[in-house]
Each structure stands twice: as C-alpha cells, then as structure tokens.
Amino acid sequence: MAQETDRFVWILRILTFSSGIALIILAILKFITFSIGSARDFFLTIYYIFFGILICLSEMPCKRLMSCFYFLKFYIGKALFFLFLGTITFTWTPIFYLIISIIMFLASGFYFFLFLSCSRKENEQPKGEKQEPAKFEKREVENEA
C-alpha cells in the first residue's frame, strides 16, 4: 500500500510540476502578445507567474522554500493551495487555462484524498523535526530627541 501511495504521489508531483511550467509559459506568452486587457488581468498574469514558480519549487526538495511556505509540506496545505489556484485560473476562453484549472482541481482532490486516507503519523509533523520559526530580526529604533 505504501509503495502504491508513493508511486501515486510521484505521478501527482510530475503532473502538478508540468502544470506549473505551463502556467508560467502561458502567462509569459500573455505578456509577449500584449493580450492584457485590464489592470485585473495584468495582476492575475503576474500572480500566475509567481504561483507557477511556487508550484515548481514546491515539488522539488528545497528546504529554504519550505521554511517560508511550510504549509506546502503537508497534503492538506497542498490541497488547499491547488484548490485556490484552480479557482483563480478557471476561465472558459483560452482552453489552456481551463485545462490547467482542471488539473489543479484534480490535484487538490487527490491531495485531500491522501490527507484523509493516510495514517495520522504521515500527516503530522515528525517529533524529531522542529518547525523553524520565520527569521525576522527585531530592530531597535533609537529615538534621538
């Protein structure tokens, strides 16, 4: 069962990685062809590029990224993230965005399934591994009066 789940997750990762690449390519093509009609469309295209890069990096072993986007380590975090991406990319007109959003909805459903079906130990944070807190520096401001 564990080997089948690993194979299934591997196929799912390849599918989501390729949809992240496709999202980046479609957004760049949208910029190149000047087919941006409104300010909303402009910002959505920038979000597509950013989220496409985030999808690709989340499927690679990148510890620094996972310390910033810790929710992407878990099935439920990925499921909610792909659900969000499926909703913002959903449109009928360019068929490519419709295909990407369907892939995102399917990936979200599969990650929800993996979250619900896997044992509690696989879904929780390992006890030996501590979550790294965000590295923010506290700055002291000296007031000169």
Rank of each mutant, 00 (worst) to 15 (best):
T89P: 01
L29F: 13
S58R: 01
G109E: 05
S108N: 02
F51K: 00
S119R: 05
P133T: 14
I95S: 10
E4L: 08
K63C: 06
A79C: 06
F69M: 05
F113P: 06
F51Y: 11
T87H: 08
I14M: 07
L116K: 09
L26P: 00
R64T: 10
G77W: 03
I32N: 05
D41G: 09
F136P: 00
F71H: 09
Y97P: 02
F81D: 00
Y47T: 07
L12F: 03
E4R: 06
F105Y: 15
F43W: 15
F136W: 14
L65E: 03
K127R: 09
I32K: 05
Y47A: 15
P94Q: 09
G77M: 04
S38K: 09
S38R: 11
K135V: 07
L116R: 09
T89F: 01
F96E: 04
R40C: 08
I11M: 08
W92S: 13
F42Q: 13
I88L: 12
G37C: 05
G128P: 04
E132Y: 13
S19C: 15
I102N: 08
F69G: 02
F69L: 12
R7I: 08
F84T: 04
L80I: 12
C56S: 11
M60V: 15
D6E: 14
G37Y: 08
E59W: 02
C68S: 14
P61F: 09
S67A: 13
S117V: 05
P133W: 13
L12I: 04
K121Q: 13
L15F: 14
F90L: 15
E122T: 09
T33K: 12
G20E: 02
A107F: 00
Y48G: 11
F96A: 15
K30Q: 08
G37T: 08
I100L: 07
S67R: 14
E124T: 08
Y47V: 08
F31V: 06
R7C: 06
I24Q: 02
T45Q: 03
P126K: 10
Y48T: 04
A107N: 03
C118S: 15
R120W: 09
I100R: 01
M66S: 08
I88Y: 01
I21T: 07
A39M: 10
S19M: 11
D6T: 12
I95D: 03
S101L: 05
K130H: 10
G109Q: 03
K130F: 05
W92V: 13
A79T: 02
E59R: 04
R13Q: 06
G86P: 01
I32Y: 06
S35T: 10
E122Q: 11
T45I: 04
S67C: 09
S117H: 12
L116N: 07
S38V: 09
Q131E: 14
L15Q: 02
S35V: 08
K63A: 09
Q131A: 12
L83T: 00
G52V: 11
I53S: 03
L44Q: 02
I102H: 04
A134F: 15
K127H: 11
F84V: 06
F81C: 02
R7M: 12
G128I: 09
K78V: 03
F84L: 13
W10H: 14
F31D: 03
L98Q: 06
I76V: 12
A107E: 00
F51W: 04
F31P: 07
S101Q: 04
L106R: 04
L65V: 06
I28K: 00
F43K: 03
K78G: 07
